[in-house]
């Protein structure tokens, strides 16, 4: 469940963002946050993750969201497989391995599982980060926060991932931060425009 009510936020001395934004989603589906650069899309992600506190209003996300950050945030010295396995330390290793390989397959990186993250291209790292989020997501009822998930991803893989997300949103809540209206339309998302529009 995501519940945001009367949201105001500002960084020290800067202009206020969101102007009392309110929205909620209590069943699986997709919310798309759209708007120009600097309108606060990534700030909203920080608020949903609890990394930032609103100046005014309420933000409730339950269960804790699984984020895909704008930066890849992979351990460069580890293989993609090992990067994905790290968060799954508290489940059976065989099941964890299966989930990791499935997630890598969904983003078209199964053949690159043992490649070091530092040796991967920007697009591959992006897809690997997405795979990590997918592997970490619970079986159902999770919240997936995706900040510009397709930056640097080629069209073929993007379509494949979008199709997978389309199925995933039947069991999970997806928050998609994007510039691309077509991605939001593909997922039949509830659009939320930021930046006063």
């Amino acid at each position: 469940m995501i519940f945001v009510s009367d949201l105001f936020f500002s960084y020290d001395g800067e202009k206020e963002l969101f102007g009392g934004l309110s929205f909620s989603l209590d069943s699986p589906g997709t919310l798309a946050f759209l708007g120009p650069s600097g309108c606060g899309k990534s700030t909203l992600m920080g608020l949903l993750l609890g990394e930032l506190s609103p100046k005014k209003g309420r933000v409730v996300c339950s269960p804790a969201p699984v984020p895909l950050f704008q930066e890849d945030r992979l351990f460069p010295h580890l293989s993609l497989r090992k990067n994905l396995l790290l968060p799954l330390h508290d489940i059976d290793p065989k099941i964890a391995e299966k989930r990791v390989l499935e997630a890598l397959d969904r983003v078209g990186l199964l053949s690159e599982a043992d490649k070091k993250a530092s040796d991967c291209s920007g697009g591959m790292k992006r897809r690997a980060s997405l795979a990590r989020a997918l592997a970490f997501l619970p079986e159902s009822g999770g919240i997936l926060l995706l900040d510009e998930p397709f930056a640097g991803v080629d069209d073929g893989n993007k379509q494949k991932i979008l199709s997978y997300l389309n199925g995933l949103q039947k069991k999970h809540t997806i928050c998609l931060i994007t510039h691309d209206h077509q991605d939001a339309a593909f997922l039949n998302a509830k659009n939320i425009y930021l930046g006063g529009r």
Partner: peptide
């Protein structure tokens, strides 16, 4: 700092 935030949200252990 960004990696530490990632580690928190992906519940990495202190040892990791």
């Amino acid at each position: 700092e960004q990696m530490l935030i990632m580690a928190k949200h992906y519940r990495l252990t202190r040892l990791q």
